[in-house]
């Protein structure tokens, strides 16, 4: 397999393909990452969402916005507001904002309700007041899917895209994926097989900045989730798997299955016990 590694949207990506990408396709991937970052990043002052934060008002977003808002709408409903795209202000309050200050300016605050004051539907955002749109729950998975579309359009039918925990696979050979131990990065707690689908992992303790602060918040309280320490999800596409992995921090997997019947899921709790669907539970080490 050929391998192309790069850093984008603040994290590391690896694209493995059966045949070399060539300069043109590598450039296309980097260009797509840059475009995506310029639209959606809360961490750069010139992004579209940064301008929304500063100004409010009406905004037209690119095409991928429709997929994202539809997924967020389902997640918001099924988690009863635990996943909320307007959680950005809660994150920034705890220090997870532009410039990575990583210093809280106050105690946790709930995200604003996704209501008439904060419209996001299809490609349109209409804000009665400035607000911070945060697509952290599913954005990286979406970018992985966008990369996949670029590869497929260029004729690559066998590939693996690994966006630091958000993995998309295509091809006739399944791949064995280790589930990284939440506390021991050189260990795994199990192995699952992935083929023609996506596997996404989420954990709070890796991007933690002291005293229980990490980026996985319950939007209803604005506080980091303490009971769930790591989650995994499999779905047809990486955006959905990423969103489910995030939602598993604030919602039982069984509830999510009601809304997303095709998923597989795993939750590891702070007491070390795990709950999940059979595909994951059977893959855990005993």
């Amino acid at each position: 397999m050929e391998s192309f590694k790069f850093e984008a949207i603040g994290t590391l990506f690896e694209v493995r393909t059966a045949h070399p990408l060539g300069d043109g396709l590598e450039w296309a991937l980097l260009n797509e990452a840059e475009r995506f970052d310029w639209v959606w990043s809360r961490f750069r002052p010139d992004s579209l969402v940064a301008q929304m934060r500063a100004n409010g008002g009406r905004w037209d977003l690119p095409a991928e916005s429709s997929r994202l808002s539809a997924l967020y709408s389902r997640l918001y409903r099924v988690t009863d507001g635990g996943v909320n795209p307007w959680v950005g202000s809660s994150l920034e309050r705890l220090g997870y904002g532009p410039g990575y200050e990583l210093v809280p300016v106050g105690g946790p605050e709930p995200a604003p309700s996704w209501d008439a004051q904060h419209l996001w539907q299809g490609a349109a955002v209409v804000l009665a007041h400035p607000a911070v749109l945060d697509i952290g729950a599913a954005g990286k998975g979406l970018l992985v899917d966008l990369f996949g579309a670029i590869l497929e359009e260029a004729g690559h039918s066998e590939y693996l895209i690994d966006g630091s925990g958000d993995i998309r696979h295509a091809g006739s050979e399944p791949i064995r994926a280790a589930l990284e131990h939440p506390y021991q990065p050189d260990e795994a707690i199990g192995v699952v097989e992935l083929q023609n689908g996506a596997l996404c992992a989420s954990a709070g303790n890796r991007r933690a900045w002291g005293d229980g602060l990490h980026h996985l918040l319950d939007a209803r309280t604005g506080a980091p989730v303490e009971t769930v320490v790591a989650t995994w999800a499999m779905a047809e596409d990486a955006m959905t798997a990423d969103g489910i992995a995030t939602a598993l921090f604030v919602c039982p997997g069984a509830d999510l299955v009601g809304e997303f019947p095709a998923i597989e899921w795993l939750q590891v709790f702070s007491d070390g016990h795990a709950e999940g669907s059979p595909a994951f539970i059977e893959g855990l080490f005993t």
């Binding site: 791949i175 994926a177 192995v191």
Partner: peptide, 13 residues
């Protein structure tokens, strides 16, 4: 473990 990929979050930017 004979695995092709690791699903985790240890790699950060």
């Amino acid at each position: 473990l004979n695995v092709g990929v690791v699903a985790g979050s240890s790699l950060t930017g």
